[in-house]
Amino acid sequence: MKALSASRYLATEENKAKAGSQLSPFKVMVSKEVSDHVRSWRFILLLALVVLTFFASLYISMSNIRASFSNSGDPDHAFLYLKLLSATDGSMPPFHVLMSFLAPLLGITMGFDAINSEQNSGSLTRLLAQPIYRDNILLAKFYSAMLIISTLFISLTLLMIGGGLLFTGVRIEPSELLRILGFTLLTMVYVGFYLSLSILFSIAFRQAATSALTSLGIWLFFTVFYPILVNLVIRAFLPDPAYLSQSQLMGYNELIMDIMRIAPGQLYSDAATTMLMPSIRSLGPMSMEQLSGAIPSPLPFRESLVIVWPQLSGLLAGSIAFFALAYYIFMRREIRS
């Protein structure tokens, strides 16, 4: 024992001399979190689900790419790679619609027990007794999940582009690449929104099951019940359209759309559709005056980006707000279990 403790001292002295060459605690935490996620069964399961969805929708769009590419009635028909992501023969929803369901699930899975499982098992106290900042723990949880998600989506997209190149031999347009990357980024932000929401619940609730169910409940509410609810309420309050003037009707339409856009899923699908279909020029209703003289042609990437900017910033703001709230609660939290 004495020999060991002597060697321990030597090692410590050596370590102290070498200090500065090692990873920062934040990076250590991130690498541990990433390896935890990657090895966990539920992540593997969800990964399989996302990859399966991706390849299934890709297969379907590949199989009728010829038809949609030569459909000259569609102003977007020349965007082969966008068609790969969004075209469908009706047997299965396109990838971005499926993602609006799956992405929240992915975010919730990665975050719902981020803090409370550590607190319940007692490892949080041990972790906090190390010389690290408390906020780094939260940040590491968020960052590592986002790292995995972005790796996943970027590699899926690149795989799709590569596969498309190989399969069709058609050159990819720069604007297509930008749109696809924009769509990927959008999906990542959408996952991040639910991730920060579920991390917030993992701090607020002591039980992992409670936080998972609450996050899932919110997701379900916004995807299923919220549109129904809005419909019901609108139908009760809206005056008979027959008695409304054109401009009043437009105003009401605008209002309904704005109410619908409280749901993050709506924001995502609005933005994703705009990104993947360059001919979409507005997300709201348009008057005849606006439409008259417009040639149904694709918009440049920048214009599409301008259209989805409110959606994108809304999602980002939501994620940041939830993360900030989580941060606020966690910093003032008693850590004893």
């Binding site: 070498k18 060459s21 605690p25 690290i132």
Partner: peptide, 9 residues
């Protein structure tokens, strides 16, 4: 590692 020990050894 959290205590910033160098990776070597």
């Amino acid at each position: 590692r959290l205590n910033a020990m160098p990776e070597k050894g």
